[in-house]
Amino acid sequence: MKTLQWLTVAGILSLPLIAYSGQDSSSESAAGTPAESLRSAQDFADINNEEKRSAAMFEELGKVIQHPRCMNCHPAGNQPLQGMDMTVHEPPVERGPANFGTPGMECNTCHQSENVTLAAQAKDIKSVPGNPKWHLAPIEMAWVGKSLTQICEQIKDKERNGNKTMEEMIHHMAKDDLVGWGWKPGEGREPAPGTQKSFGELFEAWVHSGAHCPSA
């Protein structure tokens, strides 16, 4: 009986390990490793042409926006992504009617209001990410597969940015707690470059410089 039970456990175990082997843990920095840096608005002061300066700042913002920590929850389809290699989320969950999963398998079935370091041992995963608002970005805010220029236009478009004015967008980028998760993503995950504060300041400077997009 004992043996049979353990065989069963091993069997169930082998599936998740296969599922996670696609996640390249070597490309994820360990917790505490300093994040890639983000340049500040001052670093662009020597570009005299305002339009060019503004577009250059957005390219810098793109280091955060196009980081897997942000992109993975802005997928173009109905499944979230995970890992630095942006593979399909395991288990295979769906967006659902409210971007919060499907009945019986909501995001908070597994994701708590905070990152949870695993008590169990697993080779490639150290923690389950979490936040009180954990959910997918609505499909009109999809970023995956788009160029930075397209994402830039999208962020300025009230139809595709959650009906926000640019001032509201500044607040969202600088203060929103779920956006902020990108810089404190839990053990075993590489954070987005810079800090939410420096990202928010650069975003504000970009908006106030005319919010020009990089040319395609």
Binding site: V9, I12, L13, L15, P16, A19, Y20, E90, P91, G104, M105, E106, N108, T109, C110, L118, A119, A120, Q121, A122, I125, V128
Partner: peptide
């Protein structure tokens, strides 16, 4: 089963909603 929210063997309800 797995301890890493991958298998569902540990599913319970919290306030009627599923929880691993």
């Amino acid at each position: 089963g797995c301890g890493i929210s991958q298998c569902g063997a540990c599913t319970v309800h919290v306030n009627g909603m599923t929880k691993r």
